[in-house]
Protein backbone atom coordinates (compact mmCIF):
# COMPACT_ATOMS: atom_id res chain seq x y z
CA UNK A 1 0.00 0.00 0.00
CA UNK A 2 1.22 3.50 -0.90
CA UNK A 3 -0.25 5.94 1.58
CA UNK A 4 -0.12 9.70 1.40
CA UNK A 5 -1.32 11.09 4.71
CA UNK A 6 -2.16 14.80 4.94
CA UNK A 7 0.87 15.72 2.89
CA UNK A 8 1.25 19.52 2.67
CA UNK A 9 3.71 21.16 0.29
CA UNK A 10 4.20 24.65 -0.94
CA UNK A 11 5.40 25.89 -4.31
CA UNK A 12 5.40 29.63 -4.80
CA UNK A 13 1.94 30.83 -3.79
CA UNK A 14 0.39 27.37 -4.13
CA UNK A 15 -0.39 25.23 -1.14
CA UNK A 16 -0.97 21.58 -1.88
CA UNK A 17 -2.72 19.14 0.35
CA UNK A 18 -2.98 15.47 -0.55
CA UNK A 19 -4.56 12.56 1.29
CA UNK A 20 -5.01 9.25 -0.48
CA UNK A 21 -3.87 5.66 -0.63
CA UNK A 22 -3.17 3.22 -3.44
CA UNK A 23 -3.25 -0.56 -2.96
CA UNK A 24 -0.29 -2.46 -4.36
CA UNK A 25 -0.46 -3.48 -8.01
CA UNK A 26 -3.27 -1.07 -8.69
CA UNK A 27 -3.34 1.79 -11.21
CA UNK A 28 -4.05 5.29 -9.94
CA UNK A 29 -4.85 7.93 -12.54
CA UNK A 30 -4.22 11.47 -11.31
CA UNK A 31 -6.27 14.02 -13.20
CA UNK A 32 -7.70 17.50 -13.02
CA UNK A 33 -7.29 20.90 -14.66
CA UNK A 34 -3.86 22.28 -15.42
CA UNK A 35 -1.99 24.12 -12.72
CA UNK A 36 -3.49 22.27 -9.78
CA UNK A 37 -0.30 20.44 -8.96
CA UNK A 38 -0.51 17.05 -10.62
CA UNK A 39 3.17 17.11 -11.46
CA UNK A 40 3.95 18.59 -8.06
CA UNK A 41 2.41 15.50 -6.49
CA UNK A 42 4.93 13.32 -8.29
CA UNK A 43 7.74 15.67 -7.30
CA UNK A 44 6.59 15.49 -3.70
CA UNK A 45 6.48 11.69 -3.82
CA UNK A 46 9.96 11.60 -5.32
CA UNK A 47 11.31 14.02 -2.75
CA UNK A 48 12.11 16.87 -5.16
CA UNK A 49 9.45 19.02 -3.51
CA UNK A 50 9.98 19.17 0.26
CA UNK A 51 6.92 18.66 2.44
CA UNK A 52 5.81 20.85 5.32
CA UNK A 53 3.86 18.20 7.11
CA UNK A 54 2.27 14.82 6.60
CA UNK A 55 3.74 11.47 5.62
CA UNK A 56 4.37 9.29 2.61
CA UNK A 57 4.32 5.61 3.52
CA UNK A 58 5.15 2.57 1.44
CA UNK A 59 4.38 -0.77 3.05
CA UNK A 60 4.01 1.04 6.36
CA UNK A 61 7.45 2.62 6.10
CA UNK A 62 7.70 6.40 6.26
CA UNK A 63 9.59 7.69 3.21
CA UNK A 64 9.46 11.37 4.09
CA UNK A 65 13.14 11.53 4.91
CA UNK A 66 14.45 8.96 2.46
CA UNK A 67 16.70 10.09 -0.40
CA UNK A 68 15.25 10.16 -3.89
CA UNK A 69 17.06 7.01 -4.93
CA UNK A 70 16.06 5.12 -1.79
CA UNK A 71 12.36 5.53 -2.52
CA UNK A 72 10.58 2.67 -4.29
CA UNK A 73 9.81 4.72 -7.38
CA UNK A 74 10.67 4.47 -10.99
CA UNK A 75 9.62 7.51 -12.97
CA UNK A 76 8.86 8.77 -16.44
CA UNK A 77 8.78 12.55 -16.67
CA UNK A 78 6.99 14.65 -19.27
CA UNK A 79 10.28 14.98 -21.10
CA UNK A 80 14.01 14.40 -20.65
CA UNK A 81 13.60 10.76 -19.72
CA UNK A 82 16.71 9.85 -21.65
CA UNK A 83 20.21 11.25 -21.68
CA UNK A 84 20.07 12.33 -25.28
CA UNK A 85 23.83 12.52 -25.71
CA UNK A 86 24.32 8.92 -24.54
CA UNK A 87 23.72 5.74 -26.47
CA UNK A 88 20.54 3.74 -26.03
CA UNK A 89 22.61 0.99 -24.46
CA UNK A 90 24.11 3.35 -21.88
CA UNK A 91 20.66 4.72 -21.06
CA UNK A 92 19.37 1.23 -20.47
CA UNK A 93 22.32 0.15 -18.40
CA UNK A 94 21.73 3.07 -16.05
CA UNK A 95 18.40 1.42 -15.26
CA UNK A 96 20.13 -1.74 -14.18
CA UNK A 97 23.04 -0.21 -12.33
CA UNK A 98 23.17 3.45 -11.29
CA UNK A 99 26.88 3.55 -12.13
CA UNK A 100 26.17 2.23 -15.62
CA UNK A 101 28.62 -0.67 -15.19
CA UNK A 102 27.09 -4.04 -15.93
CA UNK A 103 27.88 -7.60 -14.96
CA UNK A 104 27.52 -10.35 -17.54
CA UNK A 105 24.12 -11.32 -16.20
CA UNK A 106 22.93 -7.72 -16.39
CA UNK A 107 24.18 -7.49 -19.94
CA UNK A 108 21.95 -10.45 -20.80
CA UNK A 109 18.99 -8.82 -19.09
CA UNK A 110 19.59 -5.67 -21.05
CA UNK A 111 19.63 -7.47 -24.37
CA UNK A 112 16.52 -9.37 -23.52
CA UNK A 113 14.65 -6.21 -22.60
CA UNK A 114 15.86 -4.52 -25.76
CA UNK A 115 14.55 -7.38 -27.87
CA UNK A 116 11.30 -7.34 -26.07
CA UNK A 117 10.77 -3.60 -26.64
CA UNK A 118 12.02 -3.96 -30.22
CA UNK A 119 14.94 -1.62 -29.80
CA UNK A 120 17.74 -4.17 -30.05
CA UNK A 121 18.86 -2.73 -33.38
CA UNK A 122 19.06 0.77 -31.88
CA UNK A 123 21.40 0.00 -28.99
CA UNK A 124 24.42 1.80 -30.39
CA UNK A 125 22.50 4.90 -31.48
CA UNK A 126 22.50 8.15 -29.62
CA UNK A 127 19.19 8.51 -27.77
CA UNK A 128 18.71 12.06 -29.07
CA UNK A 129 18.77 10.80 -32.65
CA UNK A 130 15.73 8.53 -32.18
CA UNK A 131 12.15 9.23 -33.14
CA UNK A 132 9.57 9.99 -30.46
CA UNK A 133 8.13 6.48 -30.56
CA UNK A 134 11.58 4.89 -30.31
CA UNK A 135 12.49 7.13 -27.41
CA UNK A 136 9.30 6.08 -25.66
CA UNK A 137 10.20 2.42 -25.99
CA UNK A 138 13.74 3.02 -24.75
CA UNK A 139 12.44 4.91 -21.72
CA UNK A 140 9.91 2.18 -20.99
CA UNK A 141 12.45 -0.58 -21.28
CA UNK A 142 14.73 1.29 -18.91
CA UNK A 143 11.88 1.51 -16.42
CA UNK A 144 11.28 -2.17 -17.01
CA UNK A 145 14.93 -2.93 -16.21
CA UNK A 146 14.79 -0.76 -13.10
CA UNK A 147 11.95 -2.95 -11.87
CA UNK A 148 10.84 -0.63 -9.07
CA UNK A 149 7.69 -1.47 -7.07
CA UNK A 150 5.98 1.80 -7.99
CA UNK A 151 6.07 3.54 -11.34
CA UNK A 152 5.26 7.25 -11.48
CA UNK A 153 4.28 8.61 -14.86
CA UNK A 154 3.89 12.31 -15.62
CA UNK A 155 2.04 12.34 -18.93
CA UNK A 156 5.08 10.78 -20.55
CA UNK A 157 3.30 10.11 -23.83
CA UNK A 158 1.43 13.37 -24.15
CA UNK A 159 3.60 14.64 -26.99
CA UNK A 160 3.03 11.50 -29.08
CA UNK A 161 0.24 10.76 -31.48
CA UNK A 162 -2.78 8.74 -30.23
CA UNK A 163 -1.54 5.45 -31.65
CA UNK A 164 1.79 5.70 -29.83
CA UNK A 165 0.01 6.86 -26.69
CA UNK A 166 -2.06 3.69 -26.84
CA UNK A 167 1.07 1.60 -27.31
CA UNK A 168 2.73 3.29 -24.36
CA UNK A 169 -0.20 2.53 -22.16
CA UNK A 170 -0.19 -1.11 -23.27
CA UNK A 171 3.46 -1.41 -22.32
CA UNK A 172 2.76 0.14 -18.92
CA UNK A 173 -0.03 -2.32 -18.28
CA UNK A 174 2.21 -5.15 -19.26
CA UNK A 175 4.76 -3.96 -16.75
CA UNK A 176 2.07 -3.74 -14.14
CA UNK A 177 1.00 -7.31 -14.73
CA UNK A 178 4.41 -8.84 -15.12
CA UNK A 179 6.40 -7.02 -12.47
CA UNK A 180 3.43 -6.47 -10.17
CA UNK A 181 4.09 -2.78 -10.32
CA UNK A 182 1.91 -0.15 -8.72
CA UNK A 183 1.20 2.64 -11.18
CA UNK A 184 0.60 6.32 -10.46
CA UNK A 185 -0.06 8.16 -13.70
CA UNK A 186 -0.73 11.83 -14.20
CA UNK A 187 -2.92 12.37 -17.25
CA UNK A 188 -4.99 14.91 -19.07
CA UNK A 189 -6.89 12.29 -20.96
CA UNK A 190 -8.77 10.39 -18.32
CA UNK A 191 -10.83 8.73 -21.02
CA UNK A 192 -7.76 7.12 -22.50
CA UNK A 193 -6.69 5.47 -19.27
CA UNK A 194 -10.10 4.82 -17.79
CA UNK A 195 -10.00 1.15 -18.73
CA UNK A 196 -6.52 0.65 -17.41
CA UNK A 197 -7.00 2.61 -14.19
CA UNK A 198 -8.34 1.07 -11.03
CA UNK A 199 -8.54 4.34 -9.08
CA UNK A 200 -8.78 8.00 -9.92
CA UNK A 201 -7.46 10.95 -7.91
CA UNK A 202 -9.08 14.13 -9.16
CA UNK A 203 -8.04 17.61 -8.20
CA UNK A 204 -10.71 20.22 -7.55
CA UNK A 205 -8.31 22.80 -6.25
CA UNK A 206 -4.66 22.55 -5.23
CA UNK A 207 -5.52 21.59 -1.68
CA UNK A 208 -8.64 19.62 -2.44
CA UNK A 209 -8.39 16.24 -4.10
CA UNK A 210 -10.93 13.41 -4.21
CA UNK A 211 -10.25 9.75 -4.76
CA UNK A 212 -12.73 7.32 -6.28
CA UNK A 213 -12.64 3.94 -8.01
CA UNK A 214 -12.41 4.07 -11.76
Amino acid sequence: MLEVQDLVCRLGTHRFHWNFSVPEQSFLAVTGPSGLGKSSLLNALLGFLPSESGRICWRQQDLSHASVAARPFGVLFQRDNLFEHLSVEKNLSLGLSPSGRLSGVMQEQLLEAARRFQIDDLLKKRAGALSGGQQQRVALSRVFLQNRPVLLLDEPFSSLDPGLRRDGLDWVQELQREQKTTIVMVTHHLAEVREAASHVLEGVSSDQWTQYPA
Partner: peptide, 25 residues
Protein backbone atom coordinates in the same frame (compact mmCIF):
# COMPACT_ATOMS: atom_id res chain seq x y z
CA UNK B 1 18.68 21.62 -15.08
CA UNK B 2 17.71 19.18 -17.74
CA UNK B 3 18.95 15.91 -16.33
CA UNK B 4 19.23 16.38 -12.59
CA UNK B 5 15.76 14.86 -11.83
CA UNK B 6 16.44 11.83 -14.00
CA UNK B 7 19.90 11.31 -12.49
CA UNK B 8 18.47 11.58 -8.98
CA UNK B 9 15.65 9.19 -9.67
CA UNK B 10 18.10 6.67 -11.09
CA UNK B 11 20.32 7.11 -8.06
CA UNK B 12 23.40 7.77 -10.19
CA UNK B 13 26.50 8.15 -8.02
CA UNK B 14 28.57 11.33 -8.31
CA UNK B 15 31.29 9.75 -10.43
CA UNK B 16 28.81 8.48 -12.95
CA UNK B 17 27.12 11.87 -13.14
CA UNK B 18 30.45 13.54 -13.76
CA UNK B 19 31.34 11.07 -16.47
CA UNK B 20 27.99 10.67 -18.17
CA UNK B 21 26.34 14.07 -17.77
CA UNK B 22 28.76 16.86 -17.00
CA UNK B 23 31.71 15.69 -19.03
CA UNK B 24 29.67 15.24 -22.22
CA UNK B 25 28.12 18.64 -21.53
Amino acid sequence: RRYQPLAESLGMPARTRLGLIYLPA
